[in-house]
Design a protein around this nucleic acid. Structure first.
Lengths: 118, 118
DNA sequence: TCAATGATTCAAGGATTATTGAAATATGGA
DNA sequence: TCCATATTTCAATAATCCTTGAATCATTGA
């Protein structure tokens, strides 16, 4: 992930509805969610969710694929990991004072089940 | 770091000048940098740098302290670490597919045990 | 006190981003 | 083909953010 991408990704995550959407898509995993289901769960209008999904896709944090009449959105795990990595390495210069505590948290996080995250 | 803070922090990092400032302040460490020096290095006007510094301070990612005529800005390492942690835990649900690769990167620059961090 | 330095604040503007509802597009089934 | 469903696109408006330059504030030293 280069700086330009990171700037767009940070912008994408700086909006409440979009952060909510990312969380839902991470939880839903590779199955993803249809645009309509996202709109319903996030309690926003179809056209508004479409606007935000477009923005998230532009950032690379999510991907879409049509499945019959629905369009399924999934979180892009690589991009999310890349953003965390950018924040640690490029932005914070790999500074241990910043990164070590955060990394320790991740190191101890056991594989969580889908249910536990609801 | 709660969600409201994280939203503001992501917004703060989504602007090129501000991302540049954060990087400089992380590098300069506890000594920090005066507003004028930041403006000069980032090649922006004094009033413009002041605008962005205010935005960064509002996000909690930097702190200021007056030193004689200068105002010294320093990176807030805890807040930066907190944001990385938020991204891993709250946003990505501690999902190992996302967090493990990123954590691995940090692990090599800062071997810290969980106990050391308590 | 006066001038110089370092920085912020303010107002105006331009640019970008967010929301809304109506219209358009794509798909699948009767 | 026609209709219903799922979603996007578009245009208009509102809201927020960014930049600029002038004015202001705070500190220090002569």
């Amino acid at each position: 992930m280069d700086q330009r991408q990171a700037l767009v990704a940070f912008g994408a995550l700086s909006q409440e509805t979009r952060l909510h959407i990312i969380r839902m898509l991470v939880v839903s995993g590779p199955d993803g969610m249809a645009a309509g289901a996202i709109a319903e769960k996030a309690e926003v209008s179809p056209s508004n969710v479409s606007f935000h999904l477009k923005e998230l896709e532009r950032s690379g944090l999510i991907a879409q694929q049509r499945e019959s009449r629905s369009i399924i959105y999934t979180a892009n795990y690589e991009a999310l990991g890349g953003l965390i990595r950018f924040l640690m390495e490029d932005c914070c210069g790999g500074n241990p004072d910043i990164c070590a505590p955060a990394a320790a948290v991740a190191a101890c996080c056991a594989p969580a089940t889908k249910e536990e995250l609801q």
